[in-house]
């Protein structure tokens, strides 16, 4: 008997209107004929030029494969549910640039604001003047070595913490932000799937071969 391995990703993005199984899943089978037939299974036709999202359960996919290759032994690997995003056309570059610019502006002023509120809150200036007086015995004019090196140390700390230096990583590890981004995407997917399960149970486990539609 032939064995077919079906590996689902957590999430994928497609641009083709016709969604076939080979677009989303990794399929390996000892029998090439079955493998090709399984890959060509038409899962769904997306409505043209509209951003959509479909969620497929591995059970749906197994019964689909069973339909074209009866009796094949299917071994599911990876995720049990997969989120498929249909993006008919890529976003215009200028819109993307605008969004990036907007986030940059917020991040810039936000970071500036954060450090200023901190400096004001703990009264860094006064603290430094006192320290200067205590250590040197002369009054500080507010422009001494301590302020200078504090201002050098601050960006240095961010550089080390973010593990990057204008595009060049200091080490091979992903930066904390990249790690957070991956975690965030994982959590978003999990909640999409949870929401989907909730809907399905409330509709008394309505069996749908074409997956559950969601329009953004």
């Amino acid at each position: 008997m032939d064995t077919l391995y079906l590996k689902l990703p957590q999430k994928c993005t497609v641009t083709a209107e016709k969604l076939i199984l080979g677009d989303i899943a990794e399929i390996t089978c000892s029998n090439l004929g079955i493998e090709n037939r399984a890959k060509a299974i038409l899962l769904k036709r997306f409505a043209k030029n509209k951003k959509q999202r479909a969620i497929f359960s591995v059970n749906t996919l197994i019964s689909e494969i069973d339909g074209v290759a009866p009796g094949v032994n299917i071994v599911p690997l990876g995720e049990v549910d997969t989120v498929v995003d249909y993006l008919p056309k890529p976003r215009p570059k200028c819109l993307e640039m605008l969004l990036v610019f907007l986030v940059c502006v917020i991040a810039f002023f936000g970071a500036a604001f954060t450090i200023m509120t901190f400096n004001t809150d703990v009264d860094t200036g006064k603290l430094f003047q006192d320290l200067y007086m205590q250590l040197t015995g002369t009054a500080s004019d507010g422009f001494t070595v301590i302020e200078l090196f504090y201002s050098i140390g601050l960006p240095l700390g961010i550089l080390v913490f973010f593990n990057h230096f204008s595009g060049h990583k200091l080490t091979n590890d992903p930066t904390p932000l990249e790690v957070q981004m991956a975690e965030y995407e994982y959590t978003v997917n999990k909640s999409l799937l949870a929401e989907n399960t909730r809907k399905e149970t409330s509709a008394h486990a309505r069996k749908s071969v074409s997956g559950t539609d969601r329009t953004d």
Partner: peptide, 11 residues
């Protein structure tokens, strides 16, 4: 990078 510059400027 932007956070880095923003914090430096604000400081």
């Amino acid at each position: 990078t932007v956070i880095l510059f923003g914090a430096t400027a604000g400081n």
